[in-house]
Design a protein around this nucleic acid. Structure first.
Length: 853
RNA sequence: GGGCGCGUAGCUCAGUGGGAGAGCGCUCGCCUCACACGCGAGAGGUCGCUGGUUCGAACCCAGCCGCGCCCACCA
């Protein structure tokens, strides 16, 4: 049977990813390799919690990059024999999921209000059961070694318990409170959203200047606004306390046009006297700054725009019921009619939009639940300051700290139906409020019926608990003991505040330790043209298409190789390089596996090239491993590539082919050993092709996915062999270049004589020179090699080549002489640098002298 | 307004004090019994600009030009 497979292998001159990936993945799953036992402690084990994708999500390039990075480290540590868990799960994604299901209902002509909350939530669950695992299947395509048996969801029964426990404890500590406060109202999702979910965009609006007459005077205060409809809610006009123009008016009143309300003229530092007229209308109900000013001065807070984006009765009869935009037109034309409109001019400014729905944010005051963050932030700041949570690259440490030090209360309630319904119950008759992990039966005070809070929690409230809630917290589960804290987190920087900072805070507060020791902030892969990859721009590149076309290994290699500390454009060439590498590895392995003698894989160096190869292999293992451990994926991938392609394939395999074909036992043993170690080293980066090749390896016991990861063996390092073979390689290169330059026919073997030293055997063979002891005059010299006359080479070309080389050498000699003639260089440069320069000079002079004979 | 980062070969990117690198593309030569998704050899760069520090600068410092991202309450 084994012979049959090898026979088939002989015919397969190309690695076909599509033929092997699904099969191998199924084998890994069948082996149960990705589902660890909950044993031991986190100090010995290795664990990672995947940033949970939205349950509505499809795999995008960011997931693919982040997944490739995590899987590389997870696989490496699993192979090292550590009990390894990579937790899988999805996020219920309140707004996004609710929107998807609402849209589906809309297509059936149903609104969620028609069917009611309970039925709607059931529909969402049904949707989740049917479509929610899409992205999970896509992670399998990438080869991600997640624990598919232990998939979690942020609305799991156990997870809800964790969320309620946290809410309750924060409430008991006094951190969570309910307040009427200015929030970012998202008319698109009909909910409040947090500051972090708001994006500012430049918008061209009209800036209207409006005259507010001063009471009992013929003076007017001219104020400017881009939202004239909000004037209906004005409750003051403010000027800067140092502004002499208005000093006498402070304490007086002006009259609000259209409404007639008396507005106190107040002084507040916030007002910039340089802007416009230096008078600012104050609308505490609809502007975040004005809200602050209003609270400072105890102003009335009037709301004229409701959550539906329409004017309410506070706006006055003529405007009630109008949409804000309609109201704006109506207000402007009314002002124009009464002559209060002083000016209109185009005005570009930045305006908040909802990142979720895209709608323009309507700032308004509403009754919401908030969480004070300052106390939670303190220890989360300290652990980062002390590098107990290390952030890489280091510039993000400061970004994190700056934000944390300025942290503000978090609006945690959302006016949605899909999510964690806030665990608060109200008793209407006696106005009692109950916060509990489980619904209380009745009001303890009056025995009346209780009504649960309608709002749900911000999705990020539950995501913040991800690293420990997925492990069973608040129960002291074996999973929690075995896998918390997790080992590291890799993430996009856009969720550093939204998610990472909050996990650090909740981890310390509730799980008693930081959630991870390392945070790696990866770069952003942009579209090919440098724009953001985004669905709406149509600039996205589908990782699944890349996998279909080039294979998962190619995409993984490509993404790791193109990743960097700075943002980079998606590189098709890097993915192709990955595909080429898989193919190269496949064919190099075929050469080895189909030609080796029956021996054990063991290092059995008999020639200097064997010692060279083993030394280079160990150096590569040490370097690639170190790079992976420091999250330098790009260099890890490229160093592995360089070793495999250049050192192993271009040189070693070419050098030892004759020995291999003769069936030499020693070289077979060495090759099998090197292949085994190389496959294991590459497996975390390219799991499929390495596993597939491993299945043909005579040493195979089980799957490569659980094979030992190579520890660099220092005893195999051999500086002498490295230097000698490097010299032979260099000589071979120079001889080949010489041949090309004199246009020697490719297949012809040219006569030559070596003087002084004996070149290694491979030099002549690979450069196609025959070394003899013919004593005739050489036509040229390449290092220690004298090239003899032969019919195939053109004397003129040789002469030209000789002259070119002499010219090259003269310029080198000049350069070195100039440097060494500089007293300051000789005096001040380190001795080693000077000595090196002297050696070079001698070498060049010697060669020049030789060629000038 | 504050902060971070980038500008290196035609393209995409490495390189952070001692002679400019990779992949792709390009040119020339090879179907050499693992691989033409291959092999061999090349061409190609005033390292954005200007000054400074240094024996020596792509790299350190200052300024300028261009580009990107993040944070921030100028109506």
């Amino acid at each position: 049977m084994a012979d049959e497979r090898l026979k088939a292998l002989k015919e397969k001159t190309r690695y076909e990813s599509a033929e092997v990936e699904r099969r191998l993945f199924a084998e890994w799953i069948d082996g149960g390799y990705f589902h660890p036992k909950a044993e031991g402690t986190a100090a010995d084990n290795f664990s990672v919690a995947i940033p949970p994708p939205n349950v509505t999500g499809v795999l995008h390039m960011g997931h693919a990059l982040n997944g490739s990075m995590q899987d590389a480290l997870v696989r490496m540590n699993r192979m090292r024999g550590r009990n390894t868990l990579w937790t899988l799960g999805t996020d219920h994604a309140g707004i996004a999921t609710q929107a998807v299901v609402e849209k589906m209902l809309g297509e059936e002509g149903i609104s969620r209000q028609e069917i009611g909350r309970e039925a709607f939530v059931e529909r969402v669950w049904a949707w989740k059961e049917e479509y929610g695992s899409q992205i999970v299947e896509q992670y399998k395509r990438l080869g991600a070694s997640l624990d598919y048996e232990g998939e979690r969801f942020t609305l799991d029964e156990g997870y809800v318990r964790a969320v309620y426990r946290v809410f309750k404890q924060l409430y008991d500590k006094g951190y969570i409170y309910r307040d009427n406060y200015m929030v970012n109202w998202d008319p698109g999702s009909h909910s409040a959203i947090s500051d972090l979910e708001v994006v500012n965009r430049e918008v061209e609006d009209t800036l209207y200047s409006i005259d507010y007459p001063v009471e009992g005077s013929d003076r007017v205060l001219t104020v400017a606004t881009v939202r004239p409809e909000t004037m209906l809610a004005d409750t003051a006009v403010a000027v800067n306390p140092g502004d002499e123009r208005y000093a006498d008016l402070i304490g007086q009143h002006c009259i609000l046009p259209l409404v007639g309300r008396r507005l106190p003229i107040i002084a507040d530092e916030h007002v910039d006297p340089e802007f416009g007229t230096g008078a600012l209308k104050i609308t505490p109900g609809h502007d975040p700054n004005d809200f602050e000013i209003g609270r400072r001065h105890g102003l009335e807070e009037i709301g004229v725009i409701g959550p539906d984006g329409r004017m309410n009765e506070e706006a006055g009869k003529r405007f009630t019921g109008l949409a804000a935009a309609e109201a704006q037109e109506a207000v402007v034309s009314a002002l124009r009619g009464e002559g209060s409109l002083r000016a209109e001019e185009p005005y570009v400014h930045s305006v908040p939009f909802s990142e979720r729905s895209g709608a323009r944010i309507e700032p308004l005051i509403s009754l919401q639940w908030f969480c004070r963050m300052d106390e939670l932030a303190k220890p989360a700041i300290e652990v980062v300051e002390r590098d107990e949570v290390r952030i890489t690259p280091p510039q993000w440490k400061r970004v994190y700290l700056d934000w944390m030090r300025e942290i503000r209360p978090w609006c945690v309630s959302r006016q949605l139906w899909w999510g964690h319904r806030i665990p608060v119950w109200y008793c209407d008759p006696c106005e009692e409020t109950y916060v509990a992990e489980e619904a209380p039966e009745r009001c303890g005070a009056c025995g009346g019926e209780l009504r649960q809070e309608e709002d749900v929690l911000d999705t990020w409230f539950s995501s913040a608990l991800w690293p420990f809630a997925t492990l069973g917290w608040p129960e002291g589960t074996p999973e929690l003991r075995a896998f918390y804290p997790t080992s590291f987190l890799t993430t996009a920087r856009e969720i550093l505040f939204l998610w990472v900072a909050r996990m650090v805070m909740t981890g310390i507060e509730f799980a008693g330790d930081v959630p991870f020791r390392d945070v790696y902030v990866h770069s952003v892969i942009q579209a090919r043209d440098g724009r953001r990859m985004s669905k709406s721009l149509g600039t996205g590149i589908d990782p699944l298409e890349e996998i279909d076309e080039h294979g998962a290994d190619a995409l993984r290699f490509g993404l790791l190789a193109m990743s960097s500390t700075q943002d980079v454009r998606f590189s098709d060439a890097k993915v192709q390089q990955g595909a080429d590498l898989a193919n190269k590895l496949w064919n190099a392995s075929r050469l080895i596996l189909l030609n080796v003698a029956e021996v054990d894989a063991a290092p059995r160096p008999v020639g200097i090239e064997d010692r060279w190869l083993l030394s280079r292999l160990e150096a590569t293992i040490a370097s690639v491993t170190a790079k992976l451990e420091e999250y330098d994926f790009a260099h890890a991938a490229q160093e592995a590539y360089a070793f495999l392609w250049s050192e192993l394939c271009d040189w070693y395999l070419e050098i030892v082919k004759p020995r291999l074909y003769e069936g030499e036992a020693e070289v077979s043993a060495t090759l099998l050993w090197a292949l085994e170690r190389l496959l294991a080293l590459l497996h975390p980066i390219m799991p499929f092709v390495t596993e597939e090749i491993w299945s043909y390896h005579p040493s195979r016991q089980g799957h490569l996915a659980v094979h030992a990861f190579p520890e660099p063996d220092e005893s195999l390092r051999d500086a002498g062999a490295e230097a000698e073979v490097r010299a032979g390689i260099e000589l071979t290169g120079r001889l080949r270049a010489w041949r090309d330059l004199v246009e020697a026919p490719a297949a012809t073997v040219l006569p030559a004589r070596a003087e002084g030293i004996e070149p290694q055997e491979f030099v002549g063979r690979l450069a196609r020179f025959e070394f003899g002891d013919d004593g005739g005059d050489p036509v040229a010299a390449v290092g220690p090699v004298k090239i003899l006359a032969s019919a195939e080479i053109d004397a003129e070309a040789v002469a030209a080549r000789l002259e070119a080389r002499r010219k090259e050498l003269r310029s080198e000699v000049d350069r070195a002489e100039g440097k060494l003639g500089n007293e300051k260089f000789v005096d001040r440069a380190p001795a080693g640098v000077v000595a090196e320069e002297r050696e070079k000079l001698e070498r060049y002079r010697a060669e020049l002298e030789e060629l000038s004979e």
